[in-house]
C-alpha cells in the first residue's frame, strides 16, 4: 500500500510537470514558415540571376560613371575612403561595397571577387577556386560546387574586361602582376555563396533586392564622399550622367538605369515558373 502511494505521488509529480511544460507550448520554430512555402528556383538559377544583375551594374558603373567621369576630370582611386583622397571607388571596390552591404542584410548571400593576377596578392585564387577559374578562362561558363566545409552552395562567374577603364587601370597599376590585359579578357571571377539548394519566390526576390540595396548603399557612400570634397570640383548630382558634363546621377537614377537594363532577363526567370 505504501509503495503504491509512493508510486502514485511520483506519477502525479511527473504528470503535473509534463502538463505544465506542454501547456506552455514551445518556442515557435523559425524555419517552419519558410519550409511550408514552395521552393521554385534552384540555387544555381538564383545565383545566375543575381550575377547577371551584377554584370549590368558593374558595366554601367565602369563605363558610364568611371569611364565617362574620368573624361570630365572626376577621380577614382583604390584609397577613395582615405581622408586626404578626394575620389570615388574603383569598380572592384564598388563591388566590395555591394558585398559588404549584402553581408549586413538578413539575406545569407556571400559575394567575393578574386583573380589569378590580382592587384592585391591576398585576392589570388587558391585551391578549388584556382582550378575552377582555369576552366572559366577557357569557356567563360559559370562553375558550381558545394563547399562541404562551410556547407555553402558556391558559384563562380567570369569577370570580363568590358571597358577600357578595366584594362588601362590594371595595366598601369604599380602593384599589378600582369600588365598586358586587353578588352574581353577574363580578369577574374565573382564567387557567390548561399546555404540552401533551392529558394522560394520570396527568398529569390530577397536575394535580388539585397543586391540592389547593396548597389544603392555603396553609390550613396560615394555621393556622401563627394559632399566632403574640399579641393576638387564637386559634380552636380541629379538626373544627368557624366557623358553630359560634370554631372552624376542620384542613387535612384542610377538604380533605375540598372533595372531598365537588367530587368527583362530577371523578370523572364521570375515569371517562368514551371
Amino acid at each position: 500500500m505504501k509503495n503504491i502511494t509512493k508510486f502514485l505521488n511520483i506519477a502525479y509529480i511527473i504528470a503535473i510537470g509534463s502538463i505544465s511544460l506542454i501547456s506552455c507550448g514551445g518556442v515557435p520554430e523559425e524555419n517552419k514558415a519558410s519550409a511550408s512555402t514552395e521552393n521554385v528556383f534552384s540555387v544555381a538559377e538564383v545565383l545566375e540571376m543575381v550575377s547577371k544583375e551584377n554584370d549590368v551594374t558593374r558595366t554601367l558603373y565602369t563605363k558610364a560613371i568611371v569611364g565617362k567621369g574620368k573624361t570630365q576630370g572626376m577621380k577614382f582611386d583604390e584609397d577613395w575612403r582615405k581622408d586626404d583622397v578626394e575620389a570615388g571607388p574603383l569598380p572592384a571596390l564598388f563591388l566590395r561595397g555591394v558585398a559588404t552591404s549584402i553581408k549586413k542584410s538578413p539575406v545569407p548571400l556571400g559575394l567575393y571577387l578574386g583573380s589569378d593576377f590580382p592587384v592585391n596578392a591576398a585576392n589570388k585564387f587558391v585551391g578549388k577556386q584556382a582550378v575552377l577559374f582555369e576552366k572559366i578562362k577557357e569557356d567563360q561558363e559559370p562553375q558550381f560546387f558545394y563547399d562541404e566545409e562551410q556547407e555553402l552552395h558556391t558559384a563562380m562567374f567570369a569577370d570580363v574586361a568590358g571597358a577600357d577603364a578595366c584594362v588601362t587601370c590594371h595595366n598601369n597599376h604599380k602593384q599589378s602582376p600582369k600588365t598586358d590585359w586587353k578588352l574581353g579578357d577574363v580578369m577574374g571571377a565573382t564567387t557567390w555563396q548561399y546555404p540552401k539548394d533551392s529558394l522560394s519566390y520570396k527568398e529569390t526576390v530577397a536575394v535580388l533586392n539585397s543586391y540592389a540595396k547593396g548597389t544603392v548603399d555603396i553609390y550613396m557612400e560615394y555621393l556622401d564622399e563627394i559632399k566632403a570634397f574640399e579641393k576638387s570640383e564637386k559634380p552636380v548630382i541629379g538626373d544627368k550622367w557624366p557623358v553630359e558634363g560634370n554631372y552624376l546621377p542620384t542613387a535612384e537614377v542610377f538604380l533605375d538605369s540598372v533595372k531598365k537594363l537588367s530587368s527583362y532577363e530577371t523578370m523572364k526567370h521570375l515569371v517562368t515558373m514551371n
Binding site: R81, G97, A99, T100, K103, K104, G110, Y112, G114, K124, F125, V126, G127, K128, Q129, A130, D147, E149, Q150, L152, T154, T191, Q193, E221
Partner: peptide
Amino acid sequence: CLQCHDRPNDRHPNYRFSEPRFKE
C-alpha cells in the same frame, strides 16, 4: 559586435574570410 563596431573602412572585415580561398 558589428552593431557598434561596423565601419565601411575596415581593412579586414569578418565576412571576407568566409570565402573558400581563405579556408586554410
